[in-house]
Simulated assay, not measured.
Amino acid sequence: MSAIDRKDYCPRYSYEDSPQSISYGATISAPHMHGYALEHLENYLRPNMTALDIGSGSGYLTACMAEMVGSGGKVVGVDHIPELVDLSIDNMKKQHSDWLESGRVKFIVGDGRLGCPEEGPYDCIHVGAAAGKKPTALIEQLKAPGRLFTPVGTYSQYIMVYDKKEDGTVEEKRVMGVMYVPLTDADKQLGRDY
Rank of each mutant, 00 (worst) to 15 (best):
N91E: 02
G77T: 00
H96E: 04
K93N: 09
I89T: 10
E118S: 15
G112S: 05
G112R: 03
V105G: 05
S88P: 00
L87T: 13
L87F: 11
G77A: 04
L84S: 02
C116Q: 12
G110F: 02
V105S: 04
G115F: 08
I108N: 07
V109G: 04
V105W: 08
D90W: 07
D86Q: 15
L87A: 12
K94V: 08
E118V: 14
G115P: 06
E101Y: 11
D98P: 10
Q95A: 13
L84E: 01
V109R: 01
N91M: 01
D86H: 14
G77W: 01
R113W: 05
W99D: 04
F107L: 15
G112A: 04
S102R: 08
I108P: 01
R104T: 00
E83T: 05
K94A: 05
V109W: 03
D90T: 08
S97T: 12
M92R: 11
R104I: 02
R104Q: 12
I108W: 06
K94P: 00
I108A: 12
P82I: 04
V78M: 05
M92I: 15
S88F: 00
S97W: 10
V78P: 02
P82S: 02
R113A: 09
H96I: 07
E101M: 14
V105H: 06
D86V: 13
F107Y: 15
K93V: 06
I81K: 06
V85D: 00
G77V: 01
P117T: 07
W99Y: 09
P82W: 01
S88G: 06
L84W: 03
D79W: 00
I108S: 10
F107E: 05
G115R: 06
D98L: 12
S97R: 14
V85K: 04
S102Y: 06
H80R: 12
W99C: 00
Q95Y: 08
E119H: 13
C116T: 07
L100V: 09
E118D: 15
H80C: 12
P82F: 05
H96S: 08
Q95N: 14
G115A: 10
D98N: 15
S88I: 00
L100R: 07
S102A: 10
G103M: 11
K106L: 14
L100M: 10
D98T: 13
E83S: 07
G115W: 01
G103I: 11
D90A: 14
S97P: 09
C116W: 07
R113G: 09
G110H: 01
P82Q: 03
E119Y: 14
E83C: 00
L100A: 10
I108F: 09
M92K: 11
E119Q: 13
F107A: 06
D98I: 11
I81E: 10
D79H: 03
